[in-house]
Amino acid sequence: MSRESTSKLPNLDRRDFAWFVDKGMQVFMFIGGISAIVFIIGIFVFITKEGLPFITDTMNFGEFFTSPRWRPTSENNPTYGALALIVGTASVTGFAMVVAVPFSLGAAIFIAEFATGRTREILKVLVEMLAAIPSVVWGFIGLSIMNPLIIDTFNVPVGLNVLNAGIILGLMAAPIMTTIAEDALKAVPDTYREAAEAMGATRWQIVWRVVLPAARNGLVAAVLLGVGRGFGETMAVLMASGHSINLPGGIFDSVRALTATIAAELGETVQGSDHYRALFTLGILLFIVTFVINLTADLVVRGVRKK
């Protein structure tokens, strides 16, 4: 009996077909896993490859960051001052955040803390729909709906300006901020709320004194990611901001953004020219800034988890 049952034991060292398939699939999955790293490095390498000669040969750092004169196509004396573009991006993004942060956080608080059941579901779906609208459609809205609206309402000559692009960008950044802020609020354990409730706190007191402080890091991350979204937005800003090189004095001035400059000019440059490489240099700047924003948001969120 014992012999017999030992003999039905197969060779445990023989690697069968399934074993090799398993190993093969593991390698394939690993390749998929590292692809994200490969692409991030690839993005940096390829835009640096095209932009680096400009940085080392032509670029004047002082001029790049302090001069508002972006005249890459000037025949005699091309200048590459990106200050106006940086200020343009900053002003539009800044205005967008002024508009979007209160509303997004307010919406997140309502959805997470006040809304229940069906209302909650419907609002979440609507916010998701808001996030789905393509940026070129937003740009078109800025151009064809907001533009005349602003001209009529405020009696200004041009409706494509910081105000227009800021509102559009705010609406675009709002869903991501709302969603992430709502997740952060939902992550606060119910026991906190129950404890405060037991002490007789009202709903608002619970939110203000207990939930918001506990979710602080997640809310900061939400705003950061919203900033990142606004900062990197291209088509909508290109179409709604007026696209004129300008240090804006107010919200009715037209501006030009870093992203929009690349989108508008890359098609007209000669590959390998200073202008072409300068646009890639703007890309490097955008890549680094968004990388830092995303990294910070991630670290902030992780700070929450550690506690």
Binding site: T6, L9, P10, N11, L12, D13, R14, R15, D16, W19
Partner: peptide, 18 residues
Amino acid sequence: FAGHDINKIKNLYALRKR
């Protein structure tokens, strides 16, 4: 396991099947 050191078995899936 039945005379095999299970730390040295090359195909663990075959072991687990038993």
